[in-house]
Each structure stands twice: as C-alpha cells, then as structure tokens.
Amino acid sequence: MKVSAIKPITFVLVKEIGMTVLLLFGVSIIAFLIILASPGDPFAQLYGGLSGSEAERKALYESLGIPTTWYGQYFSWLGNVLQGDLGNSIRSGRPVLAEVVSAGINTLYLTLGALIVTLAVAAPIAIYTAIRDNTRLTISFNLFAYMISAIPVFWLGYLGIYLSTHLFGFFPLGLGSSDSGNIAKFLLPIFILGMGSGLISEVVRHMREQVSRVMNEEYIRTARAKGAAVWKHAFKEGFLIPVTEIMAIKMPFIIGGAIIIEQVFNWPGMGRMAWQAAQDRDFPVILGITLAAAILVRLSSLLHKIVFVSVNPRASHL
C-alpha cells in the first residue's frame, strides 16, 4: 500500500496514541517513585530490622531475586503491570486489577453523569452570556456560576441528603445497594457532583470565550446574511469542539470531585477505594488507581483529539 493511500487522519491518530502511551509511561514512573521513596522497607524484618546494614540488605534482595536498583524494580513492576498483574491488595488480598476495574466502572457512571449535568447547566448559560453581552441576567448568571463553584462539594452533598430525606422522603444511596431498583436515588450524587466541584464556572468561562469567538467569525456573518440557520454553522466549532475539549481538560477535576462525592454517598467507586488505600497505606491499590485515573484522563483527551481532527479537516494535515 502506498503511503498516500493512508488517510491523513490515521497519521494523526497514530501520533496521538503514541503520545498517550508515552505520557502514561511518565505517569507510571512518577507514581512508582513516590511509593519507592516512602519510608520503610517491607523486607526490613528479614535482615535485622532497623539495624540492618546496606550490604545485608543487598544480599537479601539478591537472594530473593529482587532488583536492587530503583530502575530494576521499576521495570520488573512495569513488566507485571503490562501483563495485567497489578499485585494483590494488602487489605483484602484480592487482585488489584479486578477490584480497580469494577470500582472504575462505578466511577465512570458517576463522572460521565456529572459531566452531562454540568454541560446541561453550563452550556445554556455560556451561550446566552456569549450572545447577549452585559445584561442584568448575564451578570446574575455569571455570579451564580461563580458561587456554586466556591461551595465545598461535600457540604452541598450533605445539604442534598438533608433536603431529599426531609422534603422528598427518600434517602439517597450509593450504587449497588439492595434497593437498586429505584434509579432516582442514584441521581442525587450525580447531580451534586455535576453542580459542585468548581466546574460550572470554568466551563461557562471557556465555552463563552469559544462561542463568542465563533460568533464573530466571518462565515457566521455570511450565514446570517444569506439567511441560513446560524446554529447549524456554529455547531461544530462553537459547540462540539469546546464540549469535548472541556471533557478532556476537566476530567482530572471531575475525578477529584468524585473522590469526595463517593465518600459522602458511599458510592462504591475508585475514589472510596483510593481513600481506603491511603488510610491503610495499601500501595498496590493506590498505584492501580493512579494508573486507572491517568488512563481515564488520557482516553478523554484522545476522544477530544479524534473529534477535533474529524470535524476539522485542517487539523489532519501534519
């Protein structure tokens, strides 16, 4: 097959996937080094506790077949990770990979749901304030966005629980509880995470800039002049690209908020696991979660790149 027969979009995608792999590699090094630098040695008991000398330590490591250098240990760990072996949880004794995947799926429900809530609230505000300039409604919308982002998300969570129990007569539960038939109960944590966690004001600001930039473009003026639907022309650049861009940029923040919200609502996700692991110093679990979170962030970024390249043909030229 000739090189020219391959679509340019393929090149861009291959480049992006390569970049993703390279970045995940960097994340794994950082996470591993932090754990390696932590005080204490799991084998200290075997070579005379704290009084053991460096030579004794080396001898023991060699007899157990453990690499003595940090990069040796890193690569042996990385080799296991690439084969899907993240070790066993120190707390539960079960394999980390299975636990992280099942918890990760629950977190995915929470974060994706929250993103939809955030966009449903923020996008209309952003578009309205971009099209109308400084009216009284614009300023109050802006202030609302600022204020909701400044409230600690867990206080909002407790307020939500109080209101739902006292006003609507149900107690919101985490996913996977015995009463999982009633889906309305799961909506509260998703709603709170979407509203809180400091996202709305940033999404509004970012989208407003993008929308008002696109609205001032000449092709929009042309579309308006010839009487075409402006919305149709502005959709790709003014809505689709900013939305996926926000997803990509804000994914880390949503995961951070999810850690808190999972704690408030007892949602059996990665955040609660990370909290538990930090309490117990359960290193295999927290390493697994760090990698999983980084993979989630990178995948959303990859999705953004794919959308960007496929709706914007200019971007596919290398």
């Binding site: 390279l22 995940l24 960097g26 996470a31 932590s38 930090a278």
Partner: peptide, 24 residues
C-alpha cells in the same frame, strides 16, 4: 511540555492521596 502533559494526566486529589499513602 512533556512534564506539563504528565502532570495534567494525574488528577490532583489522586496524586495527593498517593503522597498521603506514601508519607503521611
């Protein structure tokens, strides 16, 4: 730019929990 992208890939609270687990 590479370092920038690597830190962007790590949710901050996850990184802090990792540091908490390692060092208290």
């Amino acid at each position: 730019t590479y370092i920038n992208n690597v830190t962007d890939s790590l949710p901050r609270l996850v990184l802090i929990l990792l540091v908490v687990a390692a060092f208290k």
